[in-house]
């Protein structure tokens, strides 16, 4: 899947995460900012990387502003942002699991 326009999903509320995606020609750049960076930074990055890999996102810019969201919320917000900003024809639910 490819990001073709700027898009956002999520909020800045506690337990949520705000995800912004935008297109770019270069390789994928992911920036994660988290309020719980010290305890969970590694894990958040793993979840983000895994979710993007399943969506086959290899280029673009992805910014994740985490407010202490659960993994499942991070996945949901990332997928929502990518689906909003991506060129999608027919949703393959299996990649969202």
């Amino acid at each position: 899947m490819k990001i073709i326009k700027d898009a956002m999903a999520g909020t800045l509320e506690s337990s949520d995460v705000l995800v912004k995606v935008s297109p770019s020609d270069g390789p994928l750049e992911v920036v994660v900012k988290s309020e719980v960076e010290r305890q969970f930074g590694e894990q958040i990055r793993r979840v983000v990387a895994d979710t993007l890999a399943r969506l086959t996102i290899n280029e673009g810019v992805v910014i994740v502003e985490d407010k202490g969201a659960l993994d499942c919320t991070i996945r949901a917000r990332l997928q929502a942002a990518v689906l909003r900003g991506g060129a999608v024809e027919g949703l393959d639910w299996s990649i969202l699991q």
Binding site: A9, L70, C72, T73, R75, A76, R77, Q79, A80
Partner: peptide, 14 residues
Amino acid sequence: KDTARLLVFHALQL
């Protein structure tokens, strides 16, 4: 609607 649908999809699996 789109974002809530995905949140619920994942929350169900908790």
